[in-house]
Structures are given as C-alpha cells and as structure tokens.
Design a binder for these strands. Structure first.
Lengths: 151, 151
DNA sequence: TATTGTTATACTCTATAACTATA
DNA sequence: TATAGTTATAGAGTATAACAATA
C-alpha cells in the first residue's frame, strides 16, 4: 500500500462523523428499549469480564453514583450482579449474568440485521473501507478508556 | 488496490465497535455539559440547515415530543430558534443561531484536541485507516437518516 | 486519612397518551 | 379526517454533595 497523503484529515471531521454515528446507533436500536449507555456498559462487561464498579464508571465516562444506579437497574433486570472482592471488602465487582450475555447478543443481532440493509445499500467498497478501519477504531476506543492495572 | 477478501467482516463486529464509540465520545466531551443527543442534533442542523421539527425527530431517532422539548431547551439556551413555515402554518422550522454554530464549533474543536492525543498514540497507519473510512461512514449515517423530499 | 461505594436531591432527557391548531 | 406540533405525566438517567464502610 502507498504512503499516507501529506495533507492529513482534519480531526474535527472525525469528531463530526462520530457525532452522527450516535444518531445512527439510536436508529438501529428499537425505540425506548435500552439507553445507549446501558448498551455500552453491557458491551464493556462482555469485553472486559468482571469489573470494579469504579473502573466501569471511569471507562464509560460517567460518575461513580451514576454507575451505582445503572448497575442497580441492570441487577433489577437480571442482566448483571454485584459480587464482593475477595481481598478488599470495599470493592464491588460487577458480573454479567448469562441473561445479560443473551440480551446483549440478541440486541446486537437485531441491530446487525438492520445495519445489513444499510451496508448493502452503500456504494461498492464502502463496507470494505469500514471493515478495514474496525481494528484501528477498536484500538482507539481502548485508548480512550484504558484498562486498569491488571485486566 | 486489490479486491475484497472473500470472508466479509461479521456485521455484529461493526455493531460492537459502534457501541464502544459511544463511551469514547462521552469521554471526549466535558462531563455533564451537553447530552450526546443534543450534540448530535446541533450537528444535524449544521449539516442540513433549517429543518422541520418532525424531520429532525425522525433523523435523530427520537419521538416528536422529545424533539419538541429538545428544541425548547436549545431555544432557551439561544442555540436554535423556531420559525414558521411560509406555506403551512402547522409546520415549525428549526434554525441554528449564530451562537449555536459557535457553540458547536467550539465543542468540536475541544473534542478534536482531546482526540488528537489518542490518535497520536495509535500505531502507525491507524489514523490513516480511520480517515480512509470517513467518507463511507458518513454515507452510512446519511442512509440511516435519509433526507426528506427536498433537502 | 484515603479509598470505595451508596444515599439524597435536583435536573435533564425520553416515551406514551391526550390534546390543539391547521390542512 | 389527517397531519404537525404541544402539553401532561411518569420514569430513566445523570451530576454534585454528603455519607458509610473498609483499608
């Protein structure tokens, strides 16, 4: 592959594009079923495994009290549960339940179905360009929410 | 450039990646300053120009009453304003104000600054891959929220 | 004393249902 | 009668500040 062009993309264009992806993701989801933050937090738990409540809050970009309440809602819905940390009794470890994993998978499949219609309507090569950027975008999201000491 | 690989990316991976971008965007924004939907709606108005309230709701994936309230908040903050439609007095046209444009630009610049740190920390080539996918991602967001008859 | 998490409180955001005004 | 938008109401989601428990 050839070298990068000398004129880099304006990073505000990246931000503007990210802004519009919010609306896209909302449109892919059934209306009023689950908030974007809830979905994002479930995805985080699925990716990272059991996590401290405070780490979850940091990595999702919400406050600790907000995460306390979100976890309580998830617990009430049976999607996650609190467990104690063996070495430090102040710590709350949040675990995804089997039901939580199923819900996450079902929602993803549903959104993937809707997304498939859109991807099929794109000009040739667009889906490939998006697929090619996925690893980089994934690394970017990991940088934004760096893992704690020992993941 | 060579042809596409035969084994296409699982579209659930795209959905999963989009989910994580939510947290990234929240982390790029000053905490508690403006909701993701508000930012997305401002971006939409900036991109499309004056829009019917109901079109805004449809394209942002929220209900009409929710958009009524969001526009009222934007109006209260001086970022947008309602105007009447010349031909149909039921219609409310939403306009971005100069202050709204400034606020949007300032927030984007701020997030672009934060994003720049992350992009610089990525392995070589990652930013180029993301930049290369931007046009495709932009077309995807347009497909998700198709423009009304005459934009 | 510092850290982890919760409780208390207030406000934003959103949905559904019922309503008003215009076509 | 149908369409565009608003109002009413209830509940989810969030932040800041004050608190409790553990280290």
């Amino acid at each position: 592959m050839t070298e990068t062009p000398l004129h880099p993309v304006d990073r505000r264009d990246i931000v503007a594009c990210l802004e519009r992806l919010i609306a896209l993701l909302r449109l892919l989801s059934p209306t009023g079923e689950m908030s974007l933050t809830t979905a994002s937090t479930l995805a985080r738990l699925d990716l990272d495994g059991p996590s401290r409540l405070s780490d979850l809050a940091t990595r999702e970009g919400v406050t600790q009290p907000a995460m306390t309440q979100l976890v309580s809602r998830l617990e009430r819905q049976g999607l996650a549960e609190r467990r104690s940390h063996p070495d430090d009794r102040r710590v709350v470890m949040v675990h995804l339940t089997a039901a939580g994993r199923h819900t996450l998978a079902a929602r993803r499949a549903h959104r993937a179905d809707r997304l498939a219609w859109l991807l099929d309507a794109l000009p040739p090569g667009d889906e490939r360009a998006i697929a090619a950027a996925l690893p980089a975008l994934t690394r970017l999201t990991e940088l934004g929410a760096p893992a704690p000491d020992a993941p």
